[in-house]
Each structure stands twice: as structure tokens, then as C-alpha cells.
Design a protein around this nucleic acid. Structure first.
Length: 337
RNA sequence: GCCGCUUUAGCUCAGUCGGUAGAGCAGUAGACUGAAAAUCUACGUGUCCGCAGUUCAAUUCUGCGAGGCGGCA
């Protein structure tokens, strides 16, 4: 039965702008893409999140993309649950599920499975936020040190984000963060093939800069204004994305009545800010990805260097190979005589 | 042309009442327990604009240059 079988999953990841989308076209017809991205999930946010275009989407089926309102949250747990369902469905259609994208935190949680820590409890979180406001971070930090010294020793006393989350877990379950163990190995219900796409730093930075320039040419600012007019503000989860949040910084009025051109002088600064933030993000992504074991690292332009590995992987799953004729991947395999 | 201010890290600037200097940002490396395009950690030798003078000692004081900014002509 399928439910008991091990599902093969090709995981393609890499920093932003590395060229994942183009790379995936090599796998069209044998696979469906499960997008691993926390912001391409949002509707109306196309330019700044570098969503694949209609051409790409028509060539290869994508999931978890362009379906959510920017006011709604899409967190790690949501991703893992949806991705698990989709992997099963795609495999049932005799296709290979390809998890692809740049969100390393989602990816780690998908590979190893979610830790048993509870999901966010909005009421408790609000309470902790109140407490933070009244007592300050030093006091919360001391509190956590007493409650969970193990976890406290691993984080910084300045890490408001993690300290408040740790207290939230404690308040809602009575248990500490360290009580919940993180899974150590990849889940055994999947057979993973990890492909990490990477480029030289200078080249990656050039691609980032070029892409941001192109986003502006394609109307990123206008897209932002449109989202503002639709009522999405800086507190909308989607609007925290690099490529959107920066527009708020030079915009003190935050008026929906703005017209393109009102803030001409600031736009170049914003553009440079977006480039900088994207470069820094790419750096963090790469650091995170390096933690994953058994990765085939390759430049995305060099598909031929890894296709043998992909081929070998696919051969382990006979019924997939049966569908292997007449696909674009097959076209790239040199004919041996 | 005159007067004033200014010149210190890749950038913006502190500072040394004379004992060769440090913040923020950038950069580099790293962390990551259901918010993660988030959040956090570590890492600082630089002709202290140049030349001369005073001094045991000058980036610091004095003089003369040079660049920048502002004001008056």
C-alpha cells in the first residue's frame, strides 16, 4: 500500500536568486513542485517575492504558491502538514514530489519532522507581550534562566523573540523548551535526494542586484502601492517580506493615497536597501543550508553534473522510471550506444 | 579674497584636559525547538589629511599647507 511505502522526494534548495526556478524546468513532466517559501504563498505579491511566471507554472505544476491572503499567517507547522499531504498526493499520481525553495527553517522541520512543541497560542502570546512591555526583557530573561537554564544557555539574553516564545511554551504547557526534544534524523517515511544549488558569492550578489533592478522596472513600487490601497499594512504577515517592508521605512505618511512619483527621491535608497537585505538574507540561508547532510552541491547552470545522481535516485523507484520517456529530464541524458 | 567650521575604520561620526583610539552601519563567520524574507551571537591596526615646531612623548597643542562645507565680499 502507498500509505506504508517510502515516498521519494527530491529536495532542491538554495539561496535567493541562485536560479532555482530555471533549474526546476529540467525536472518538468516527471515531477510536481511543492514550493517551500513563506512569502510566495501570498496572493497579489508577485514581483517582490519573485514568484515564478505563468510560463514556468504552465510547464510544471506548483503547489503552495499564490493562494493565501497577505493578512493570514503561514507558519512552519502549516507548511509541514501541507507538504506531507502533497507529497503523498503527488506520489499517488506517479510523479516525484520536488520540494523546492529557499526557506531553510521550513525545510529542516520538514526533513526531520516538527518538534513536539505546541504551535503558537495567540492568547498566551499576547499575555507574554504584555509582560514584556511591563517588566522589560531583563526580567523575562531572568525568569527564563530559572525556568529552563539549559535552553537559556543556548540563546542570548537579548533574544526577545526566543525568550518570549520559550515563556509562551511554558505558560501554555507547563513544560520547558528543553523538555521537547528536536528530532535528530531525517524522517524515514521519505527517501530524500538533497540538491543544493550554489554560486560564487560575487556572482550571487550580481544576480541579486540585477534582479532587484528588474523588480523595480517591472513595477515593484506600484505593486506595493496597490497592496496598500487594498488595505495591507506593515502588520500584515505578507508585508514583512524583503522587497515590501522597506517601502514603509522611507514612508512616514503611509498614506494609501500616494501616487507613484511622490517619493522619487527615496526610491533609489529603498532599492539599495532591498539589495542589501536580500544579500544578508542569502547569507543566512546558506549558513542554515550547510547544516543539512548528504547534499549534492552544484551550480544550477551545471545540471549535467548531477543528472546521473538524479537518474540513479529515480531508478530506485521503478514506477516512476516507467514514466520517464518523453520528459525534459530524459532529453538531457546522453544516448549511449 | 577674507572669516568661521571641518578632515579619525569601507560609510556616518565619537574621543584622547598630550601616553598611538571606539560606536552605529556595512563586511566576515556562526546560531536557529510550530512567528523564520524573523531573531540573535562573535569578530575592529586605522599613514587619526600632509609637513614642520614645542615636548621624554603629538592623532590631540602651535604654525604653514591641502581638501570639504558654510558665511561675507
Amino acid at each position: 500500500m502507498l500509505s506504508k511505502s517510502i515516498i521519494p522526494v527530491i529536495v532542491v534548495f538554495g539561496p535567493t536568486s541562485v536560479g532555482k526556478t530555471d533549474f526546476l524546468l529540467n525536472l518538468s513532466k516527471i515531477s510536481e513542485i511543492i514550493n517551500i517559501d513563506s512569502l510566495q504563498v501570498y496572493k497579489y505579491m508577485n514581483i517582490g517575492t519573485a514568484k515564478p511566471g505563468a510560463g514556468t507554472l504552465s510547464q510544471i505544476k506548483h503547489h503552495l504558491i499564490d493562494f493565501l491572503d497577505p493578512n493570514e499567517e503561514f507558519n512552519t507547522g502549516d507548511f509541514v502538514h501541507e507538504a506531507d499531504k502533497l507529497c503523498f498526493e503527488v506520489f499517488s499520481r506517479d510523479k516525484i514530489p520536488v520540494i523546492s525553495g529557499g526557506n531553510a527553517f521550513f525545510l529542516i522541520n520538514f526533513i526531520k519532522g516538527l518538534p513536539a512543541t505546541p504551535k503558537c497560542n495567540p492568547i498566551v502570546r499576547k499575555k507574554v507581550e504584555e509582560e514584556l512591555k511591563n517588566k522589560g526583557i531583563e526580567e523575562l530573561s531572568c525568569k527564563l534562566e530559572k525556568i529552563d537554564p539549559d535552553y537559556f544557555s543556548k540563546i542570548s539574553k537579548n533574544d526577545t523573540y526566543r525568550i518570549t516564545r520559550a515563556l509562551e511554551i511554558y505558560y501554555s504547557t507547563g513544560k520547558t523548551v528543553s523538555y521537547f526534544k528536536i528530532p535528530e534524523k531525517p524522517r524515514e517515511c521519505y527517501n530524500f535526494l538533497f540538491i543544493g544549488l550554489i554560486r560564487e558569492k560575487e556572482e550571487l550578489h550580481e544576480r541579486i542586484n540585477r534582479r532587484v533592478d528588474l523588480m523595480f522596472e517591472n513595477g515593484l513600487y506600484e505593486e506595493f502601492l496597490k497592496l496598500r490601497k487594498m488595505g495591507y499594512g506593515s502588520s500584515s504577515p505578507g508585508m514583512g517580506a524583503i522587497g515590501y517592508k522597506e517601502f514603509f521605512e522611507l514612508d512616514n505618511e503611509q498614506s494609501v493615497e500616494w501616487q507613484p512619483g511622490d517619493k522619487q527621491l527615496g526610491l533609489d535608497d529603498i532599492k539599495e536597501l532591498i539589495k542589501k537585505n536580500t544579500r544578508q538574507y542569502a547569507k543566512r540561508q546558506i549558513t542554515f543550508f550547510k547544516k543539512i547532510d548528504n547534499v549534492i552541491w552544484e551550480n544550477p547552470d551545471n545540471f549535467s553534473a548531477i543528472f546521473h545522481k538524479v537518474e540513479e535516485f529515480l531508478k530506485q523507484h521503478g514506477k516512476i522510471v516507467c514514466n520517464f520517456d518523453n520528459c525534459s529530464f530524459y532529453d538531457k541524458i546522453p544516448i549511449k550506444k
